[in-house]
Amino acid sequence: MSKQVADQADGLRRLLAPAPTRVIAVASMARGAGATTTAMNIAAALVLQGKNVLLLDQHAARAGSVCAQWAIDALGTWTDVAQHRLRCAGAAVASGSGVHVLPAPPDPAVATSDPREFYQGGAILIDAAIDDEGRLLPLAQMADELVLVLQPTPSAVTAAYAGIKRLHYAHALKQARLIFNGVRDADSAQQMLTNLVNTGSRHLAVSLQDGGLVRADPHQADARRLYQTVVEAYGTSPAAVDFRRIADELWRSPWRSKVLRSRAAEQGHRIVDGAIDAAHAASHPAAAFQGSSF
């Protein structure tokens, strides 16, 4: 096959292939690290990039939840959607930023439901909860990417190391991305983050990645008083710039699809290849009969 035909085939494959949905879980090893705020800001930043974003809130019943911080009320929950009582578009509520939010409190009845079946062609972020034994809840276990948020302090790093170890043994965790939030001394925080990434990768058999630093920024408190994220309210402030950069790097990073996603993609790939063969046969009738027997 010539390079031109190969390029045309690749272009047709991309055109016909369904847009995948990326699922990203954001969690922290300790309360107060800013995981919910981080999830909200990343979601808002992805919307600014033109992405469709659904944010599933596993902390919906707590003060400081996503809905509380955005001062919005959803019409349903993830359970309503997963059990087909409501469509996702009817249950979720859109924030002022354009992020669609759906409360997702823990519910064993929908523990095996895959959010990709109900929201397609964009990004699904999960403001993920960790149970009392240090494990992710079932919904967050379906994520393609795990982002862990922590403060740049020795005690937070020690707690995070122990938490990552628990996640590794609970879920055979192989990869995670680390973000330091509330950074006042960038050089010191970067060194601490680099040390944690290297130590964890070497001793825990977990590939830890440097997800970036978010600088301490008084505009974040101002944004909360306005029921907005800093990305929405103060787009040029230090923290907003950091969140936008992190969201961009996160979206551009290689996807780590689940087996279920991979099998679906493989099936879709065969369908697209069949369409390419049909298109090629239509334009080259003689080629369609090569190798045929009658």
Score class of each variant (00 low, 15 high):
R14A: 12
A17Q: 11
P20Q: 03
S28G: 13
S28M: 11
S28N: 09
R31K: 13
G34K: 00
A35G: 09
T38H: 07
A39R: 08
A45R: 05
A45C: 04
A45Q: 06
L46A: 13
K51N: 12
N52K: 14
L54S: 02
L56D: 03
L56R: 02
L56H: 00
R62H: 12
G64S: 08
V66T: 09
C67D: 08
A68S: 07
Q69R: 14
A71Q: 15
I72F: 00
L75E: 13
W78K: 03
D80A: 01
L86M: 15
G90H: 13
A91K: 08
A92Q: 11
A94V: 14
A94H: 06
G96P: 07
G98Q: 04
G98E: 02
V99T: 09
A104M: 05
A104S: 09
D107M: 08
A109D: 10
D114S: 15
P115N: 03
P115K: 03
E117H: 15
F118L: 13
F118D: 12
L125E: 02
D127S: 11
D127Y: 10
A128R: 07
E133A: 12
E133Y: 12
E133K: 12
L137F: 15
Q141L: 14
A143E: 09
Q151F: 04
T153Y: 04
T153L: 01
S155K: 00
T158R: 08
Y161L: 06
L167I: 08
L167M: 14
A170C: 08
H171Y: 02
A172V: 01
A176S: 11
A176G: 04
L178H: 02
F180E: 08
V183Y: 01
D185L: 10
L193A: 05
N195E: 15
G200Y: 01
H203P: 02
L204C: 05
V206A: 09
V206G: 07
Q209C: 08
G211F: 10
Q220T: 11
A221C: 03
A223L: 04
R224H: 09
Y227H: 11
V230P: 00
V231Y: 15
E232T: 10
T236Y: 06
A239W: 14
R244I: 05
R244H: 13
A247D: 06
L250Y: 11
L250I: 06
R252Y: 04
S262N: 12
R263I: 15
A265T: 02
E266W: 11
G268Y: 06
I271C: 00
G274R: 01
A279T: 10
F289K: 09
G291P: 00
